[in-house]
């Protein structure tokens, strides 16, 4: 079976691990256990095995260790809709990703859509879509838009690899 590496990146506590677990095991935990280094999981989507690298989030002390991104075929960028600063972060994160591994397919999850403090104003949204990213308002808690997020990324990767070289 074909295998593809994808990476989850974003600030700390935005829900990268939760989205991964919702998608891989259909589970969710309210408890926050921060990821150290990288946690690898896999799941099969349309005859492709996605190897998901759930990378430790960025915080004020430590930047993301971009070594973990090597060889990724696609990126899920995650922000927390209840913390506007994590949405802003996406832009610098994207630059960092491109610098390390070049242009690869990328989707954006603005997570915690179920939360009543969720807010994404038009200006923020426009700024994201103007980058050409697909935006998903996800909830790892309810599972809203989670399958769509990974499905769209996988399709996008399929589209570029079928044009270019097949891994």
């Amino acid at each position: 079976m074909q295998k593809r590496k994808i990476c989850m990146v974003g600030d700390f506590a935005v829900g990268k691990t939760s989205l991964t677990q919702r998608f891989v095991n259909n589970s969710f935990s309210e408890k926050y256990l921060t990821t150290i280094g990288v946690k690898i999981d896999n799941v099969v989507v349309d005859d492709t095995k996605l190897i998901i690298w759930d990378v430790a989030g960025r915080d004020s002390l430590s930047p993301i260790n971009t070594n973990y991104l090597s060889g990724a075929a696609g990126i899920v960028m995650v922000a927390d809709g209840t913390r506007p600063e994590t949405v802003e972060s996406l832009h610098t994160l994207a630059e960092m990703v491109v610098e390390k591994i070049g242009q690869v397919p990328c989707v954006v999850a603005i997570n915690k859509y179920d939360h009543n403090a969720f807010k994404l104003d038009d200006e923020q949204q426009n700024k994201l879509t103007s980058q050409g990213w697909d935006i998903f308002k996800t909830s790892a808690l309810t599972g809203d838009k989670v399958p769509e997020l990974f499905q769209v990324l996988n399709n996008a990767i399929g589209a570029v690899t079928s044009v270019g070289e097949e891994a």
């Binding site: 259909n26 589970s27 969710f28 179920d114 009543n116 808690l141 309810t142 599972g143 809203d144």
Partner: peptide, 16 residues
């Protein structure tokens, strides 16, 4: 049980 819990949550959100 997981699924039931998450649907109940969704229902709660819908009602709210």
């Amino acid at each position: 049980s997981q699924e039931l819990a998450s649907r109940l949550k969704k229902l709660e959100l819908l009602l709210e």
